[in-house]
Simulated assay, not measured.
Amino acid sequence: MNAAASLGMSAQAQTVGVMTALGESGLRVLDYGDEAGPDSRGLFQQRTSWGTLAQRMDPTASAILFFTRLQAVAGWEQMTPSAAAHAVQNNTDPDHYTEYFDAATAIVAALSGGAAPGGGCSVSADAMTLAQQIMTAHAEGRFTTLVGSDQPDHLPEIQAIANGQSLPDCGIDVGILQVMVVALNNFSSVGVSDINRLCTGQSLGAGATSSHNVDGGGHAVDFYSLNGAAISGADSDSLRLIGLIDPMMPKGSRVGQSDCRTNAGTSVTLANLSQFPDSCNHLHVDNAFAK
């Protein structure tokens, strides 16, 4: 799953990968092949043409080999999961992996904190509950907001919702609260720099047209750090978060930093999120255009 996320691939791709490994090896790194492929090795039973023995026997390296080939399959997202896997593996039976799909879906959902293909998400849909979870993480030192001389604190916006208060121009879209909770479910620490700029009186970047400001504000979140490290929108943690939230976001939602990823030589394949350029010192996610 991390290998797919590092390539900017979605939970849909992660599920295909887990399903394939279940069907090939039972999620075991096998040091032997079979009659059809005596030189097959590893999680995906990859043959010598795939890479070195060391690569095929390494879970991360072999998974990257698999997902790199999956990326090259045109239209794989529209195929059945087993057909997509078959296009990569070139196995005899195109339906061989179908029986493993439900188990793979459950595994990905459990390990990603609830985000699963098809928009499934086990995080709460209640704004107060979500805000309380974020404030608990803040008390534990796992959630921080960026504060500086020209950077007002956005934590009070979350605290107000956690307290059941409805303050004018200080609301936060439930979908944005869910994105923050999914991030907390999957990273040891999360840092946020911007949420509702109407609440703090900011007018940056796109100004009044920003999803931080329009329609009462609070329809976007900017992450500045994940796992205690600064992010750019093109780093592996940013790519992993994008892959986690894409299936749960409504069509028309957006993620920034497309130019940062292009300049870094990375890309993401997305089902729901559209992309736009933005500065490379954070990761922007918005729900403003999904209404």
Rank of each mutant, 00 (worst) to 15 (best):
M1D: 03
A4G: 11
G141H: 11
E24S: 10
G175E: 08
I64M: 07
G265L: 08
G141M: 14
V181F: 06
G233Q: 11
A61K: 05
H219F: 13
P152V: 06
C199D: 02
S267W: 10
V73C: 01
W76T: 03
R56L: 02
L146N: 10
V255R: 06
A208F: 01
G207W: 05
A63V: 02
L43R: 02
R261T: 06
D235K: 13
M128S: 15
W76M: 02
I245P: 01
G205V: 01
G217C: 02
V179N: 07
N272S: 14
S112R: 05
V29M: 10
G120N: 12
G37C: 12
A288I: 07
S149G: 13
T200F: 00
S188C: 09
A72H: 09
L43N: 04
V221L: 09
Q55V: 02
Q46M: 12
D222N: 15
G114A: 13
D237L: 06
V123K: 06
L241Y: 07
G51L: 04
Q133S: 12
D31I: 00
N90A: 14
L53C: 00
A13H: 11
L53M: 09
L239M: 14
Q46P: 07
H219L: 14
F187A: 03
L270F: 07
G114K: 13
M79H: 05
S279V: 02
A116P: 10
T80L: 03
A4W: 01
T105V: 12
P152H: 05
V123P: 08
A229R: 15
S166V: 14
G205R: 02
L65G: 07
V285W: 02
A160I: 08
T98C: 03
W76H: 00
A11L: 14
A220V: 08
P250S: 09
L70A: 08
H284K: 04
S189Y: 12
I195T: 07
S258G: 03
R41V: 03
L146D: 09
Y100N: 12
D58Q: 00
Q133K: 09
E24T: 08
F276C: 02
A5H: 12
Q257D: 09
T269M: 14
L270P: 03
L27M: 15
Q257E: 15
L273K: 10
A127W: 03
I107D: 06
I107N: 04
S203N: 13
D95V: 00
